[in-house]
Each structure stands twice: as structure tokens, then as C-alpha cells.
Design a protein around this nucleic acid. Sequence first.
DNA 1: TTGGCAATCTGTAACGTTTCAGTATATTGA
DNA 2: TCAATATACTGAAACGTTACAGATTGCCAA
Lengths: 348, 348
Amino acid sequence: MDRRVPKKGDDDASGKERPTLKTLAFMTGLGVTTVSRALKDAPEIGAETRRRVQLVAKQIGYRPNRAGVRLRTGKTNVISLVLNTEHELMSFVSDIIYGVTEVIADTPYHLIVTPYSRSQDPLDPVRYLVETGSADGVIISRTQPNDPRARYMLERGIPFATHGRTDMGLVHPYHDFDNYAFAGEAVRYLAGRGRSRLALVTPPLGLTYYGHTVNGFADALSEVGASEVPFNTVSIDQSIEQIRTRTAQLMRRKDRPDGFVSSAAAATLAIVAGIEDAGLKLGRDVDVVSKQSSELLHLFRRELLVVNENFRLAGSELARAVLGWIGGADPGSLQSLSTPSEVLPYRG
Amino acid sequence: MDRRVPKKGDDDASGKERPTLKTLAFMTGLGVTTVSRALKDAPEIGAETRRRVQLVAKQIGYRPNRAGVRLRTGKTNVISLVLNTEHELMSFVSDIIYGVTEVIADTPYHLIVTPYSRSQDPLDPVRYLVETGSADGVIISRTQPNDPRARYMLERGIPFATHGRTDMGLVHPYHDFDNYAFAGEAVRYLAGRGRSRLALVTPPLGLTYYGHTVNGFADALSEVGASEVPFNTVSIDQSIEQIRTRTAQLMRRKDRPDGFVSSAAAATLAIVAGIEDAGLKLGRDVDVVSKQSSELLHLFRRELLVVNENFRLAGSELARAVLGWIGGADPGSLQSLSTPSEVLPYRG
DNA sequence: TTGGCAATCTGTAACGTTTCAGTATATTGA
DNA sequence: TCAATATACTGAAACGTTACAGATTGCCAA
């Protein structure tokens, strides 16, 4: 019997079906292999053939099938951004995402967001990504001096970039904001305004930039001859309420600080509320220098002194770094440090 | 000659290689097909075999290869969140993302973020997703009454959910905040405090919830017998500076409003700044009711009156809706509307 | 005994891509 | 002239999965 099952690309290239290499091969009269190679500018394809194939491909809107490529080559064309989803005012997360997408916009890469919650081991999502081969590159944040995730990925040879540096004697791409410089500038600025008893609202304890910030603060303190008012019970990933209450407590003591350096805008809102709860006035009784990632603090209180940190830039740099590493660049050359702006008072 | 190329899964299951169905087949002594069917609880597999296969699979940590599944079935196990990346204070974006990831966490789905910029046609990213078959489901925001993206996806039969409703007589899943109720409540609350000349800071003009908000505002105005002070030159996706300047201008006129209803927290910061630029005092000269998505407005000014909108919830609902549609549920049953909280003054 | 049928299991092909190992034709060197 | 070699192209196999169309077995009714 002649009953023959008609195969997919058998006849014409008319249909609504998405074009594949087979479609292109049929249209150009070439073999699938040749088409494949022509599209990626392989050397052993004639110049004219190459142009012809590429023209036709463009005309009919050929797009390589990601699943096909991924199955065959293992290349996913995916970058994963690993995020902790249990923090309060993470408005900067969208900035990072936008920064990343900006860079990968004209590449074949997709961005996937891989979440983990506080209760989990931060290594979990990374392990998942690596074990399932779900991404060609990974971006992590909340970096620690001795970061198991970085170590893990380094061991498996999977490209990644960290937001923040590590301190393990291992080299890998990163982007960081110079928090040492930030804290130093803040202290010097406050000293310049006659403030001499300063408190620091630190980053989360385990993270690398905690150390940078604390050191920058301490070094500048001794440089300008100011003193520190310990405020160790507070860090920026505590709740607004906690920070507010503790600040109010602190400000009701006689040995209260006359200046604050705050590592995050959200915490600063709470600090100011606490200061005012204690009946004191910003700018008169106490000055506050804060980092911010969007221009909102000056709307909040004009007396605030701000330093801008650009998270969109961070996202872009991190994406560039991962792509660079994937592309074979030297990891050591993919490190960048962002210098803080000056301390900015409200510009009338 | 006996030179035989050794194939991958030929011998043992020892290696570091990631286990595949072939590995499982070898270990269980079954055929690949049987293993495949056993893992998805197909009926024609013996109960004991099924258990055995699933046990072994769990033991060795088998994870289906996404590329293989996707190539064979067309199922991507991907949800795409389509975002406009050119707006100012989009802090709620991270909330939506977290809400989505919460829901898909214990599913095989990954979340990809697909950006588009203001200059582009909003249909572009959606077209890309559909044409390349890059996602099983799509979530869009900035929904319009007559939304080409919804229409497009409806035509192609690709599951999606919109953040905000459409008004095309077509049924599809959505999640929306009841902005009609919000604006109404806000007006009534202000009227209750003796305010009678109210201005509305609207959502962006083309979006569906612009209409809902405007109608809720207007209907409540006539209900309570208050009047509107037109403020059409301003909407919430303008820049902070523009809103601030125009508010200040408005507040310097003799026929200025004594109450504002604001559709977004970021705009509210600018409104308050404008009010104060004009030398007026919040709570005395004018009251402002504002939506907010995080608890920051009361830190900003205690006199503000807030209504909370939960974007994390929106993300979860949207994800649930898309997954439901993908799972074959009736699109009409996947619509939800979130009721605003009461108007909340600062709770001492 | 035989035929029919349900219950289980299996091999093959296909999804779209790239790599491997070629083949056919033209070009070169002596 | 012949072989060697470069040029331009090609089919088959493989990545891991699922769907299709059987194959094998045991059991029961006739």
C-alpha cells in the first residue's frame, strides 16, 4: 500500500509554520548543514551562498529555535539573576533588572529571575541552576567575603558576576559601589559641618560591603578626629519599625550622636522618623548623610545629605561582565568599581 | 574492524553526567518509553513499576531536560513578565516579580522578564514572545481599554493575564485593583474632613484604570456635593519635577484645591513638595489621600492619608491566572479584583 | 484448543540544531 | 597528464524527550 505519512517540511514553505533550517534549505536548494553554517559565517561557505542564505533568512524572519540549539549545544542563552525575595523596600531591584535587560537587549539572551527566600540556603538556587544547566551565566547579590556561591560556581566553571566583592583570594567578575569611599566622604562632610559624634547605620552584617563601609567610616573618623557613637543594634535590612524605635531610643540619650551615616534610603526614612520621635530636628540637632538610589530623599526632607548609587548602572555592568566571561574574556578584567558622587545637600 | 564508537549512556550510570531517561531506563532495566510514562503517572504502567521508577528517579535526582521537553512538545515552562523599563519610581515592579515567583516556586516554571522601552510599540515584545514561542504564558501591565496586545494573544490562543482590565467585550484573565472604589473612598473621606474642592492626580491617560479612577472620583464628588479642581496637566507617570512644579503653580492660585487624591506614592511625594513650595501646610490647608504600595508615606508626612495597594498580591494573582489558563481553566473564571483598604490616617 | 482482549511494556521516529565524516568539483603543482 | 589539495557542499547522527504503533504476556470465554 502506498499510504505514506506526509512529513512536516516535505512540500512547500507556504504554511503558517515557523521557518526552520529545513525551510531555508528547501527555499535555497541547499542542504540543512550548509544553511546552518552559512548563517554563522563559517569559513567554508562560498561568499555568495552565504549572502543568499542570510538574505532569505532575513526575509522570512528566520529565528533559530532555542530548544534545538540548547539541546544540541547545551547553550541556553539565558542569564539568571538570583534574588532574595524577603526584604522590605527593594526598589533598587527593578533598577538592576532594567540595567541587565538594557545590555542583553540586542543579544539572544533572556533574563530569568531566580528567587530564594530567607529561610533557604542561598546556595540552593545556584545549585539548582548549575545542576539543571538552566543558565549560561549567573548574577548574584548580597555577596559575602567568603561566598560559597562564588566558590561553587568557580569550581564548576560556570560564568557569573557578583554584585559586591568577595575576599577569598579568588578572582571573578564583579561590580561594586565603593562603600569605603562613601562612608569616608560622609564622615568628612559631617565633620566639615562641625559634627563630631557620629553613628553608622551599617549594611547587613555578613555581607562584604559591611566591612568596606565600617572601615571607611572608622578610618575617616580617626582622620578627622571625630568619635563613633556605637549603634550596632541596627542594620539596614531590619524592619522600618525596628530601626525607628532604636533610633528614637538612641536619640533620647544624653550621649546621642550629632550625625548619622546611613547605607540605604529606606533605613534613612526610619532614622529620620526616629530622630523626630525623640523631638529633635534634622539639620539643627543632627545631620544625616545617606545613600539613595532614586531622587526621593530630598523630597522627604530637604535637610538630608545624599550620595547617589546607581543600580541601573550596576545591572548593566554585571550583565556586561557575565557576557564577557561567557564570551571568553579574562575574568580578572571584568571587575568594576563605581565611585560615589560627592555628598549632595538639597540644591535650592 | 571492531572499532566501535562508544555511545554516551552505553555502559554504567556511574559518571558525573546528569541523569536522563536513558540512565533511568538502564538502572531499572526498563525501556525509555516506560520510564517516561511511569514518571508522569500514565495509566498503562503497572503500579509497582511506577513506584520503582519514581523512587530511583528521586534517588539519583533526575530532572527532565527542559530543552528536550521543549523541543519535543513545544512546552517551554516559561512565564514571561512584560515590563516597560522607562518609568521613574517603579518600586512596585519588584513586588510583582516576587509575587509571581512565590506562585511558580513549586512548579517547573521559570520567570523571564521581557522589557520594552517607551520608544517601542508595546506590541513588539509580545509579538516576539509569540512568534518565537518563548513562553507558555504572558503577563502584561499598563493595560488599555482597547489593548492590542490582549487582542493579539487572544487571536493566537496564547494564555496571558493582564494587570488591569480591558474593555473590548473580550474575556480573559486579569487582576485589577478597584480604582473606582479607591477614588470614591478617597473623595468621601476628604468630604468627611470638610474638604470640598478636590483635585485628582490621575493615572496615565491611555490606561484602563485612568477611566476607573476618574469615574470613581467624579461619581463620589457629585454624591457628596464636592467640586473638582481640574488638574489635567498632571498624571502619575510624569517626572517628579514636573508634578512638583505644576502642583506649586496650582496651589498659588486663589481657587486652589483643599484636597488631593493621588494614584501613586511617587507622585504624592512630588505633590507634597509642590504644596510646601507654595508655602502651604499639609493637613491644615490641604489634605492628600494617596495610594501606596509600601509603608513609606507615613514616614514621609504623618498628615498623609493612605490606601494600600498590594502589588505582591497582584503578582501572585496574575501568576495563578496564567497558570490556570495554561492548565485549561476557563479564562472567565480567572479574573480577580482587589478591594482597597479603608483610607488610613497615621496611627499614632 | 483457540480467539479475543486487557494489561504492560517497547522500539522508532520526530522536534531543530550542530558536528562529524565525508563527497564532488575545481584548482594547483610537477 | 596525474595526483594532490583546496573549495564548497552534504547526509547521518546525536542531544533528551514524547507520541505512535506495535509487541508480548496472561487470562478468560467459547
